[in-house]
């Protein structure tokens, strides 16, 4: 199972006994009756917050500065689509 999760999360872990004991520990949540309890995803109950779609300037040169490999104004990666 960890092998599959590792693939999903782009990691290379194949074994970690601690992960199993942590999953077992959080399993204690299932001992609680939560019928009818609304899940809490935001502490103050905020919903979507919209703003006007206004374009403001930003420096692509500064942002590109951090890229490990670039070509002109582009970030370079290995081949993405084969063939």
């Amino acid at each position: 199972m960890i092998k599959n999760l590792s693939k999903l999360s782009r990691l290379k872990i194949t074994d970690d006994k601690d992960i199993e004991s942590i999953i077992a520990y959080v399993g204690k949540l299932n001992s609680v009756n939560t019928d009818g309890v609304e899940p809490l995803s935001h502490v103050h109950g905020s919903k979507n917050i919209w703003r006007e779609d206004i374009v403001s300037p930003s420096s692509s040169a500064e942002i590109l500065e951090g890229a490990p490999d670039k070509s002109g104004t582009f970030v370079r990666t290995p081949l993405v689509i084969d063939g």
Binding site: L29, V32, T34
Partner: peptide, 15 residues
């Protein structure tokens, strides 16, 4: 549902 949703429900109870 068994983990994430459950944890969010428990989070509500704690709040």
């Amino acid at each position: 549902d068994a983990y994430y949703k459950k944890a969010q429900q428990v989070r509500r109870l704690i709040q």
